[in-house]
């Protein structure tokens, strides 16, 4: 995508062009600041003494540096076990999704498959119309998924968008390679594992990252399909903390401040939450720059064929 756009042939910048340049840079830099500063604020708060932060005035650097918030999060047994659930569902869910999706995408990419058009139509239709929230819930409960760990994995096993992305990617691999493999005596499975999969690393990386992020960030399944808090992923734990704070916000803030001042611990719910937010977000931010180069390609494939 980069380096393809036009270079001005003649260096003939009019004053108007220069003005456009300046305005462009100003807007883009401002946007980046607007995106980064709130994150910095949260980071600063997570490293700041909770009681001290409650007095206000902590912007982008911690005023009273402490690691207590993080220590508290790691000592909280329920948060640690929630992390375990999140990790488990992310790994199992992503692996199974990639397996089922790539199998299906490969099969649907074989032109000789009878019924291909009908199956593709039936799958794409689910993008436009689906069962509502309640019929879906009833079906999950009939399948025994409610209060079951697999409710995190099975409902998000295949996504139409990612299926279409993979199929389009397979479409772009020269058909002669598959034909050669078949002539060499590879069956469909052989062709898939020996020819297609090794060539599909970019699309597997992108779809894998998207799926993993969806798993990592999902709180809905935990909040509505899981009554026992023992199996909640970390996002649901955070969501419950948040909704308590949101509905408690009718109280006078002075009361809250007073309660904080009266408590012995220097860690407040707020500072604890900020630390949890940072810990929960960090892994995604570590992985994503490595996959970033595939994004443009992935989105374009998904859109053109979608």
């Amino acid at each position: 995508m980069e380096s393809q756009h036009h270079k001005p042939m003649k260096v003939r910048s009019t004053p108007a062009d220069k003005a456009v340049s300046v305005v462009t840079y100003v807007i883009v830099i401002a946007l980046c600041l607007v995106i980064l500063l709130p994150c910095l604020n949260v980071l600063a708060l997570s490293f700041n003494d909770g009681k001290d932060a409650a007095r206000g005035g902590v912007y982008f650097f911690p005023r009273m540096f402490t690691l207590m918030n993080y220590k508290e999060v790691f000592q909280d047994g329920s948060i640690i076990s929630a992390y375990r659930i999140t990790l488990a569902r992310t790994f199992i869910g992503t692996f199974l999704s990639l397996a089922v999706t790539s199998f299906a995408a490969f099969a649907l990419n074989q032109k000789e498959l009878p019924g291909r058009g009908i199956i593709i139509f039936a799958i794409t239709f689910t993008m436009l119309f689906g069962g509502g929230t309640i019929p879906t819930y009833v079906q999950y409960s009939r399948l025994g998924l409610i209060d079951n760990f697999w409710v995190y994995v099975i409902p998000s096993l295949v996504s139409v968008t990612y299926l279409i992305m993979m199929r389009s990617f397979f479409d772009g691999i020269p058909y002669e390679l598959q034909e050669a493999a078949k002539l060499d005596g590879c069956g469909y499975f052989g062709t898939f594992f020996r020819v297609m999969l090794p060539l599909s690393k970019p699309v597997l990386a992108v779809v894998g990252l998207y799926t993993a992020v969806n798993h990592w960030n999902d709180w809905f399944a935990g909040a509505f399909y899981m009554t026992s808090s023992k199996l909640w992923p970390v996002q649901t734990v955070l969501q419950q903390m948040l909704s308590r704070a949101m509905s408690a916000s009718t109280q006078q803030t002075e009361n809250v401040a007073a309660a904080i001042a009266a408590s012995q611990s220097s860690v407040t719910t707020d500072s604890l939450k900020m630390a949890a937010v940072v810990i929960t977000t960090a892994p995604i931010l570590c992985v994503y720059p490595f996959v970033q180069k595939y994004f443009a390609k992935g989105t374009l494939i998904g859109a053109v064929k979608g």
Binding site: N41, V42, L238
Partner: peptide, 13 residues
Amino acid sequence: FLSSVIIVTMLQR
């Protein structure tokens, strides 16, 4: 890449 829960938690603060 941030979840809605994370964003609203930040927003609330």
